[in-house]
């Protein structure tokens, strides 16, 4: 099962490599990873997605907790949560395709953020599923380049992950 694990950790050199190293060392998967400082600049928030059964996820969480730099963490997928990912995609579009691609982007509430006579760069945010859906809808269009930020997320309601 896919999980979104959100980690609050010391914003210190070495902290990120310890977390990432743990995954390779213990043969866990990381599908995506994002990290940036929080409202408290001494802390960073790292969000990663991984795949595993309950047993594996339990081990991942326990081992992450053991990393000295890790202050707190939560498996967002355990409760209701909001998940977002941002994608920038450069597609080759000419002639009639231009209107068609623009229309698909509109349906997905994507924005065309850069244009030349032969291409669009479209920006899209949403769940990973939505981004995947958009890619599928573009099937047949020539994708020149695509970048995704990886998933970030936050719990719904009053629950907060903080010190």
């Amino acid at each position: 099962m896919r999980r979104i694990v959100s980690v609050l950790m010391e914003n210190q050199p070495g902290a990120l490599s310890r977390v990432v190293g743990l995954f390779s060392q213990r043969n866990y998967n990381i599908n995506s990873l994002t990290v940036a400082p929080t409202e408290d600049p001494t802390l960073s928030r790292l969000t990663l997605t991984t795949i595993g059964d309950d047993r594996k996820i339990e081990q991942i969480i326990k081992h992450l907790n053991k990393v000295v730099d890790v202050a707190k963490l939560v498996d967002l997928t355990e409760g209701s949560h909001i998940e977002r990912e941002l994608m920038l995609i450069k597609v080759k579009v000419t002639g009639a395709q231009r209107a068609e691609v623009k229309r698909i982007a509109d349906i997905f509430r994507g924005d065309v953020v850069d244009v030349t006579p032969t291409m669009y760069t479209i920006q899209l945010t949403g769940t990973s599923e939505k981004l995947d859906g958009f890619l599928q809808a573009l099937h047949g269009t020539s994708v020149l380049e695509m970048v995704r930020t990886g998933v970030t997320g936050i719990a719904k309601g009053e629950k907060v992950l903080s010190m």
Partner: peptide, 14 residues
């Protein structure tokens, strides 16, 4: 050394 020792230490400091 921080990198080389990372998988075999409880923690490290530079």
């Amino acid at each position: 050394m921080i990198g080389v020792s990372r998988p075999v230490v409880k923690h490290s400091f530079m």
